[in-house]
Amino acid sequence: MSRVTLRVNGEERSLELDPRTTLLDALREQLQLTGSKKGCDHGQCGACTVMVEGRRIYSCLTLAVMHDGEAVTTIEGLGRPDALHPMQAAFVKHDGYQCGYCTPGQICASVATLQEIEAGIPSHVTADLTAAPQLTAEEIRERMSGNICRCGAYSNIVEAITEVAGRPA
């Protein structure tokens, strides 16, 4: 067993765990934070997306022991049912989900997407790598393409993100 201390949604959490435990399973099983979802366990679907040290990561593709001392933000850290994060509220308003299983990952990725654009990080569709990336639908779609929604709420998700970004949907 290995010892690891994570700072999860602002709270220190010390865990004794099997070193083979992924960050996702540490969150879902040990900490019972089941908002982060296991859709594939292979880094193919994005449902497990969380923020580690301020950057989004597929939590199924990384071991918990690799993150000792690091800060993890999960969907539970963004908002609560009675106090929604603006992105969560926008997803509700624009019906940016159906079954809800990919939704926490989509929302974490959405928040990260806007931060990455704000920080000037280019994407595959950024035409000019030296200019600041623009908040276009094309940029949003490209940056969100690591998060599959089989229910097909994409059109609504882009509208939700666009609204939070401050552009007319």
Partner: peptide, 17 residues
């Protein structure tokens, strides 16, 4: 809006596992 929206968007709607 869906009445289950606040649960689903906050990850608090519990699925089987």
């Amino acid at each position: 809006d869906r009445i289950d929206g606040p649960l689903k968007t906050t990850g608090t709607a519990p699925y089987a596992y």
